[in-house]
Amino acid sequence: MSTLLAAETGAGPSDPLARLVAAQLISLLRLLTSQEARRAVGSRPEAERRAAPAEWIDTSAELVGGGLKGYAVRLS
């Protein structure tokens, strides 16, 4: 993932920022698929369950740092 992010941003393949962002994104995914997160989503009312993972990711990304959301976003 870090190689892809580096390529998207024009950085070298071992760019430390790309590696850090990749690690954070992978951590968010692992946390989202954790037993605790699945239990939290499952405990919500049925009508709210579909939106719960996206809300969880948004909140987690904000906690990690506001700059992560805008990193390597394609503008075209």
Rank of each mutant, 00 (worst) to 15 (best):
A11R: 14
R49E: 03
G65T: 02
R49Y: 06
G65W: 03
A37W: 03
T59K: 12
L20C: 02
L63R: 10
R30M: 01
L31S: 11
L75Q: 13
G66Q: 11
A22N: 08
R50M: 09
S34L: 05
S43R: 14
G10T: 07
P53K: 06
A72F: 05
L4S: 14
G67V: 05
A37P: 04
P45E: 12
P16W: 01
A11K: 11
E8C: 10
V41Q: 03
V41A: 05
G10C: 08
G66T: 13
Q24F: 05
R19M: 06
R49K: 14
A47N: 09
G65Q: 03
L20P: 01
R38D: 11
G65H: 07
W56R: 06
S14E: 15
A18V: 06
A6Q: 00
A23N: 07
L28M: 15
S2Q: 13
L29M: 14
G65E: 05
L75S: 13
A18E: 02
T3Y: 06
S43G: 14
E8A: 15
A40Y: 07
A37L: 08
T9D: 03
A72C: 07
A7F: 06
P13W: 01
T59D: 15
R74F: 08
E62A: 12
R39M: 10
R44Q: 14
A22F: 02
A54F: 04
V64S: 00
L68P: 06
L31T: 12
E62D: 14
E62Y: 04
L4V: 13
E8H: 10
I57P: 00
A11N: 12
L68G: 01
P45H: 11
A51I: 07
L29D: 15
